[in-house]
């Protein structure tokens, strides 16, 4: 076994096959049933591509992203905290991830996670109305959005305007099926990209098949 670094605290664990892992910031406790690896006295958590779109993007060829220690991250659509837990690993004790989730039952798990992962800041609220939490969330270095709503592009732009620093990265998981079922997925992406173009540079577009169906991940940089 050996480790190959992708970005700080995210590695490929190379054995017979490669496994994406993050260096755990909070010990060897499993969050959602993922495997825990001990390697050179450090604890790594498996990052499962079928559970997390962000992980799937790494499996599909994403080989770097501006995300590191002490970053402030705004995460919209945190759900029960699967991906959030890995983001919390990457940004470390000094980072902050503001996790917004609207569904109460999902948010319960998120809050329980935040109890022992102190860099997670749970917010139960609607990402459509960022003004409701704008008082408590500072300007962020990364905006991650995975909300699977029809107007998800508008939600993204609204939040980026308010919270994302210029020149920083936005990660945008597009669920083509929830924007328009009847259109061709490629067409949907093209339309959404058109809307984003005035405010963002499109760095990459990654189709997440076969890990996630009908999903693409867009990596964007906010214009200065």
């Amino acid at each position: 076994m050996e480790l190959k670094r992708i970005i700080d605290r995210v590695y490929w664990l190379l054995d017979r096959r490669r496994t994406l892992v993050t260096l755990s910031a909070y010990g060897g406790k499993s969050v959602y049933g993922e495997k825990i690896f001990n390697f050179n006295d450090k604890i790594y958590r498996e990052w499962i591509p079928y559970r997390s779109k962000f992980a799937a993007a790494f499996y599909k060829g994403l080989n770097g992203i501006d995300m590191k220690d002490s970053y402030k991250v705004l995460y919209l659509g945190a759900s029960s905290g699967t991906t959030v837990s890995h983001v919390s690993d990457i940004i470390g004790f000094n980072g902050q991830v503001y996790a917004v989730e609207i569904a109460e039952e999902m948010a319960v798990n998120l809050i329980l996670l935040a109890e022992w992962r102190k860099n997670i800041f749970p917010i139960v609220g609607d990402a459509r109305k960022p003004e409701n939490y704008s008082g408590s969330v500072p300007k962020c270095d990364l905006l991650y959005q995975d909300v699977a709503q029809r107007d998800q592009t508008d939600i993204f732009i609204k939040n980026a305007d308010l919270f994302l620093k210029g020149g920083k990265i936005g990660v945008f998981a597009v669920k083509t099926r929830s924007i328009d079922v009847s259109l061709d997925p490629r067409e949907v992406i093209r339309n959404e990209v058109k809307k984003l173009r005035s405010k963002f540079d499109i760095i990459r577009e990654i189709n997440l098949y076969p890990y996630q169906k009908d999903h693409s991940l867009l990596i964007l940089r906010k214009k200065e």
Binding site: Q96, E104, E105, A107, V108, L110, I111, A114, E115, K118, N119, I120, F121, P122, I123, V124, G125, S136
Partner: peptide, 23 residues
């Protein structure tokens, strides 16, 4: 910065948000 404040707020919101419909 501590996340305790956020957790308390979120917990309160959930308590308010749950209703008999969920049951």
């Amino acid at each position: 910065m501590d996340n305790r404040e956020f957790i308390e707020k979120a917990r309160k919101k959930i308590k308010e948000g749950l209703s008999v419909d969920d049951l």
